[in-house]
C-alpha cells in the first residue's frame, strides 16, 4: 500500500489538482450564470420562463457522460464550420469541453436550487422593502438575494460535491484528472490499491470541502447562533388564557 503511494503519489496529486481546477472553475462559472437564469425562471412571462425550463429539464434529464460526448465528439461533426469560426482550438481540447459541459450541467442544477430559494423568500420581507420605497435593484440586492442565498447555501454545497464526483467522467474523454491518472496507473500496474488510494483522495477532498462550506454556512447564519435562553415555565398559563 505504502509502496503504491510513494510510486504513484505525484501522478495522482497532479490529477487531483486538475480535478479541483475543473470542478471549481465550472461550478463558479455556473453560479454566475445561474443567477440571471433563476431570475428569468421565476418571471410570470412564459417567453422568459419556458426556455429556461427547457434547458434545466434537458441537463437534468440526460446523463452527464452523454452530454460530455455530445459536446466533445459531437463538435467534431461540425469541424469545418468551427474552424472557420476560429473555435476549433477550443473544442479540440478535452479539458475545455469538460469544463464547458460541467458548467452547463451545474448551471441547470444551481438554477433550480436558486429558484426554490427565491420562491421561499418570505413575501412579507419583500413587502417591507417595498413599503420603505426601495427600488427593484436595491430590493434584490439587500433583501431577496441575501435571504435566498442563505436558504440555498447547503444545497449549493451538495451541488459542488456532486460536480466533484460527476467530474470523474471527464477521464473517459482522456482528461487526466484524478480519475484519469488513476485509470492510467492501474492499466500499467494492475494494482487494485491505486483505486483505493484514489477513493481516499476523493473522500478527503469532499470532507475538507464540506467542512469549509459548514464554516461559511455558520458565518452566513451567524445572526441565528444566539444562545437559547431558558425561561421558567409559566405555570398559570390556563389562568392567563
Amino acid at each position: 500500500m505504502l509502496d503504491v503511494l510513494t510510486r504513484f503519489a505525484p501522478m495522482l496529486a497532479d490529477g487531483a489538482l486538475i480535478t479541483l481546477k475543473i470542478t471549481l472553475l465550472s461550478v463558479s462559472m455556473a453560479a454566475l450564470l445561474a443567477l440571471p437564469l433563476s431570475l428569468m425562471r421565476i418571471q410570470e412571462s412564459r417567453f422568459l420562463r419556458w426556455p429556461v425550463q427547457l434547458i434545466i429539464s434537458f441537463f437534468r434529464g440526460t446523463p452527464l457522460i452523454a452530454q460530455l460526448f455530445l459536446l466533445y465528439y459531437g463538435s467534431g461533426q461540425f469541424r469545418p464550420f468551427l474552424m472557420e469560426m476560429g473555435l476549433w482550438g477550443f473544442f479540440r481540447d478535452p479539458v475545455n469541453c469538460a469544463i464547458l459541459t460541467f458548467t452547463m450541467n451545474s448551471m441547470a442544477y444551481q438554477t433550480e436550487i436558486l429558484r426554490g430559494a427565491l420562491q421561499s423568500v418570505d413575501k412579507r420581507s419583500v413587502e417591507a422593502g417595498k413599503a420603505m420605497g426601495m427600488p427593484m435593484n436595491l430590493l434584490y440586492r439587500h433583501i431577496v438575494l441575501p435571504l435566498a442565498y442563505r436558504t440555498a447555501f447547503p444545497a449549493l454545497g451538495n451541488e459542488v460535491i456532486l460536480m466533484l464526483k460527476g467530474g470523474a467522467v471527464a477521464s473517459v474523454i482522456t482528461v487526466m484528472d484524478l480519475m484519469g491518472q488513476t485509470r492510467r496507473v492501474f492499466s500499467q500496474s494492475f494494482d487494485i490499491n491505486v483505486y483505493l488510494v484514489a477513493a481516499a483522495m476523493y473522500l478527503i477532498i469532499a470532507i475538507v470541502f464540506v467542512s469549509i462550506w459548514r464554516l461559511f454556512e455558520r458565518y452566513l447564519n451567524r445572526h441565528q447562533s444566539h444562545r437559547v435562553i431558558r425561561r421558567k415555565p409559566i405555570t398559570n398559563r390556563t389562568a392567563l388564557n
Partner: peptide, 15 residues
C-alpha cells in the same frame, strides 16, 4: 455517497 460513481464501478469491476 462520497465516491464518484465511476470509481465505485471500477473498484467493483476490477477489485
Amino acid at each position: 455517497r462520497g465516491l464518484p460513481e465511476l470509481l465505485t464501478l471500477f473498484i467493483i469491476y476490477h477489485g
